[in-house]
């Protein structure tokens, strides 16, 4: 399996909205902390080390 980089989320606008709404009212520090938790939760869900490595690379490019 490879990292999915084509569109894979139904209703992308709705998801984007929800992401921002989750951060609403938070301070910069709180938002940073939330983002970190979110990354860890999603990374664990993916699990596959090769895919995670690809994702880290894609994010860095």
């Amino acid at each position: 399996m490879a990292l999915t980089l084509s569109s894979n989320i139904q209703d992308p606008d709705g998801f984007y909205d929800e992401l921002l709404a989750t951060h609403e009212g938070l301070s910069k520090d709180e938002s940073d902390a939330l983002n970190a938790r979110l990354i860890l939760i999603l990374a664990n869900h993916v699990g596959d080390r090769a895919i995670l490595r690809e994702a880290l690379q894609a994010a860095k490019e």
Partner: peptide, 20 residues
């Protein structure tokens, strides 16, 4: 530090974070 603290927070609730 942000990631470290996130791991500690999550570890209290979720098993997946404990091994980290």
């Amino acid at each position: 530090k942000i990631f470290r603290d996130a791991v500690l927070q999550l570890a209290g609730k979720h098993a997946f974070a404990r091994p980290m």
